[in-house]
Nucleic acid binder design. Structure first.
Length: 855
RNA sequence: GCGGAUGUGGUGAAAUGGUAGACACGCUAGAUUUAGGUUCUAGUGCCGAGAGGCGUGGGGGUUCAAGUCCCUUCAUCCGCACCA
């Protein structure tokens, strides 16, 4: 047994240097090779990497190294999502400039990422806070403006009172700011918008074709866009010249309408009800109450009767009352509906409360109108029309089309499509963001900054003495002459939502040093789309939807051909850890506790009892975090990577345990010993393995080739935990192999090293070197399994009697049913089970099972 | 409420309808070395002395055969949520 120790730190350092010195991962466009673009979601430079980063980048690195070994031209870049609010908070708390804070963090985190040994082309590093980066997105925004995809309008916005800025709809969660958690207020402001709704249909259609995306994410985006088809039309108000426009997806139920309802903030509500008794109180009531979506959904349906009535468009004699109702949303459809109590639960509740008629018009097969009336709730089933004039007898789908046809003929409405998706509001009243490249001139209005004047760079001399946007109160930055008329004008002081930067960074990686344009078209056409994108599922609708839209918008502005940025997407699970609390319920860090007698834990400081809680997502507030740097320093990058890849399937949550990382560390050392034990006795490189192997030699060689076939498949399926298990099986087999000649051992050991290389690249390079190779693994091809070795000549299968396992037998691989029957029935245990009974059926599935059915 | 996912040993997990628990963590016993960690060997789903029986959240079904397919039910997690 060798005593040679594996010096992890030195060895890992050595190989990282070798990769860097040889520029192993720097790539250029090479049309002779098939390209493969691996992309990990770029980190926000918060200060230090966390375990989630390690998981993300370990996964992308396995893919990158595997694809490179397979001969692809692999691009695996990295950058920094460097603009955003935390830098400003740090500036306020610690009196440090946002730029300085950010750049320090980047330097530190880059060092940490490098220490993970990632196969990254660092020459393409991008930082989004660099004016040389955001210069190009200012140009893109001007192009969008030119094309009508960017516009400015006054609108009611979601205002986060803590962050003092506007939030997009996607950034409001349960009525609260997604970061601050503060209840969102409604304010009217002039805002910049991007016309993502122009792409609603394409975004919806094309997500269906993204087969290498998780279904979950596709469903979430579909629901977010949420397309519906219906009829938009006007109702006349009796004794008034005004009309009310409504939207419905159920035009078939028009003859069942028994009221009209307006959203409380509908302009017509004011017109019809202003000054009426109790109206102001009613509106106030609507605005009060819970703000969360759930609270709203469960709130009672209440309404205010305006006293006006509307004339049924298809029944001139019929009039129905007009209410203002709390459950109508102003920002969906037209902010007004006609209520059909028999076929909509909300309308039903409302009708019960205000004693309005409930008239069934759609009668499901096998039922009659009375059944529906007696239901006690709304019926949403399909069926045939009744009580509906000329529609009677039609099925309700046909009736939908008929009603639309009729209304269109009357000229009071039209069939239309509606989306839940709203335009993307991109204005933020913050300093540390990309300035919106526009100028406000009293004479000329909104004027784009001329391209030659880009970038509009952020001023560095700012202060945080007062609340609000430092750009707004900067003494000079704002003041600029109008590019059109030359008179004094003011810069736009809003900056972009930081999702703007992350919507195109994957394109900047393709041409990061291009000063003239964001990226050259031919480079984008070569590399796009991203073959494998990897990141957290929390971006399912925000970033991933914006980036898809942005790419399409750029395509339509002529920037590139590709309209979908990410061909393949993998979303990883979270990293969790146990939680620890002291006697008083205070949270403790994992490194503040130690084991004590009886399997209990106590605090290191004071030996007080510790309560162990469930493993939940790592968070600073619960203190259940581990610093990956400690892990990297103690166990090395390979052990950290190996553990994180081997423990759980990557899409599932990963429970971080001390024991787990130690196990990985021991395995690294074990592999090193395994090679050390053999390296001096092996045959030279390249010696051909004899083909007439028998027994243990044959078995070992077969296992190595099965592992080759298996691991590649596992990696492609993102089953990294299974890939590691297969590798460990192979190393166990090599470790316990007896009577195997060096030439056979070498082949197995080399396979082992090649297979584990994507997971533990430092160790693999070292071991490869130990075996005498001088060419690095970064330049070595992925092994190819010999198909002829994958088939064994004997198989061991189970023998069941009436479905219960009674024995296992070994058969020649090509055994037929007769032979199998012979061998199976001669087994003692099988005989015992079969004895004295008739064999009714004998089932033999070659290579799988024997089942003897007796009775 | 709607949509989706998950449920298997003490733990993380494997299993094209065909020997359930691969590979690990942990644990038990022994050996070696050591101050200890380490390393090696054997064992380890549950019940049972054993033969054997029982086992994939619960209940039902299809099948020669079900963790896997179908129906039903429960639990947990995630997303969306008065979208007309």
């Amino acid at each position: 047994m060798s005593n040679e120790r594996y010096n992890i730190r030195e060895t890992e350092e050595k190989w990282r240097k070798a990769w860097q010195d040889n520029k192993c991962f720097e790539v250029t466009e090479d049309k002779s090779k098939e390209k493969y673009y691996v992309l990990a979601m770029l980190p926000y430079p918060s200060g230090r990497i966390h375990v989630g980063h390690v998981r993300n980048y370990a996964l992308s690195d396995v893919v990158a190294r595997y694809r490179k070994a397979q001969g692809y031209n692999v691009l695996n870049p990295m950058g920094w999502d460097a603009l955003g609010l935390p830098a400003e908070n740090a500036a306020m708390e610690r009196n440090i400039a946002p730029a300085d804070w950010t750049n320090q963090n980047i330097a530190q985190m880059k060092e940490q990422l490098i220490s993970m040994g990632l196969a990254i082309d660092w020459s393409r590093e991008v930082s989004t806070c660099d004016p040389s980066y955001y210069k190009h997105e200012q140009k893109m925004f001007l192009d969008f403006y030119e094309k009508g995809l960017a516009y400015r309008k006054e609108s009611v916005v979601n205002w986060d009172p803590v962050e003092n800025t506007v939030l997009a709809n996607e950034q409001v969660v349960d009525g609260k700011g997604w970061r601050s958690g503060a209840p969102v207020e409604r304010r009217k402001l002039n805002q910049w918008f991007l016309k993502i709704t122009d792409y609603a249909d394409e975004l919806l259609e094309e997500i269906k074709k993204l087969e290498r995306w998780p279904d979950k994410v596709r469903t979430m985006q579909e629901n977010w866009i949420s397309k519906s088809q219906g009829l938009q039309f006007k109702w006349d108000i009796k004794d008034s010249d005004e009309k009310i426009e409504v939207y419905t997806t159920r035009p078939d139920t028009l003859f069942g309408a028994s009221f009209i309802a307006l959203a409380p903030d509908h302009p017509m509500a004011q017109k019809l009800a202003a000054g009426k008794d109790g109206f102001d109180d009613f509106i106030r009531e609507c605005q009060a109450g819970g703000t969360s979506e759930e609270a709203l959904a469960q709130a009672d349906k209440v309404g205010f009767d305006t006293g006006f009535t509307a004339t049924h468009p298809l029944l001139p004699d019929q009039e129905i009352p007009i209410y203002v109702a709390n459950f109508i949303l102003m920002d969906y459809g037209t902010g007004a509906i006609f209520g059909v109590p028999a076929h909509d639960q909300r309308d039903y509740d409302f009708a019960i409360k205000y004693d309005l008629p409930i008239l069934p018009v759609v009668i499901p097969e096998g039922k009659n109108a009375t059944d529906i009336s007696d239901l006690g709730e709304a019926s949403t089933d399909t069926g045939n029309m009744e009580n509906s004039d000329f529609l009677d007898g039609m099925d309700n789908e046909t009736a939908k089309a008929e009603v639309i046809k009729h209304v269109e003929a009357l000229g009071t409405g039209f069939g239309t499509t509606n989306y839940r998706l709203r335009d993307w509001g991109v204005s933020r009243q913050r300093y540390w963001g990309c300035p919106v490249p526009f100028i406000h001139c009293d004479g000329c209005g909104i004027v784009p900054v001329p391209e030659a004047d880009l970038p509009v760079a952020l001023p560095m001399d700012i202060n945080y003495d007062a609340p609000g946007n430092p750009l707004d109160r900067h003494p000079t930055w704002k003041n600029v002459d109008c590019p059109k008329c030359g008179t004094a004008a003011r810069r736009e002081t809003d900056t972009f939502d930081t999702f703007f930067e992350s919507s195109w960074y994957f394109l900047r990686y393709l041409d990061p040093h291009n000063d003239k344009e964001g990226f050259a078209k031919d480079k984008a056409d070569y590399w796009m789309g991203v073959d494998q994108y990897i990141g957290g599922v929390e971006h399912a609708v925000l970033h991933l939807l914006y980036a898809r839209f942005f790419t399409k918008a750029l395509r339509d502005c002529g920037y590139l051909e590709q309209g979908e940025p990410f061909t393949g997407l993998f979303t990883q699970g979270m990293v969790t850890h146990e939680t620890y609390q002291d006697e008083k319920g205070g949270w403790l860090y994992p490194n503040e506790i130690q084991p004590a007698d009886g399997g209990k834990f106590v605090t290191i400081d004071g030996q007080k009892p510790v309560k162990i809680g469930p493993s939940i997502k790592m968070s600073k507030s619960k203190r259940n975090t581990v610093d990956p740097q400690d892990i990297l320093d103690t166990y090395g990058a390979d052990a950290a990577r190996l553990f994180i890849l081997s423990d759980s399937p990557p899409e599932r949550d990963l429970e971080w345990t001390e024991g787990g990382i130690e196990g990985a560390w021991r395995y690294i050392n074990k592999l090193h010993r395994l090679i050390s034990d053999h390296k001096d006795t092996l045959t030279p490189i390249g010696a051909a393995t004899p083909t007439d192997l028998e027994g243990a030699e044959k078995d070992l060689r077969a296992q190595a080739h099965r592992a080759i076939a298996q691991v590649g498949k596992n990696i492609e399926d993102f089953h990294m935990n299974k890939a590691v298990a297969t590798i460990r099986e192979l190393s166990n087999a090599i470790g316990s192999a007896k009577n195997v000649r060096p030439v056979v051992l070498r082949e197995a050991l080399e396979a082992l090293i090649l297979l584990i290389n994507p997971m533990t690249p430092h160790l693999a390079e070292e071991l490869w070197h130990h075996l005498g190779h001088t060419k690095m693994l970064t330049e070595t091809s992925w092994p190819v399994a010999d198909e002829s070795l994958l088939v064994a000549d004997t198989v061991t299968i189970g023998v069941q009697v009436n479905g219960k396992l009674r024995a296992t037998i070994t058969l020649p691989a090509n055994a037929d049913q007769a032979i199998a029957k012979d061998i199976a029935l001669s087994d003692d245990n099988v005989q015992k089970a079969v004895e004295g009974k008739d064999i009714r059926k004998f089932i033999f599935v070659p290579g799988r099972i024997v089942n003897v059915v007796v009775g």
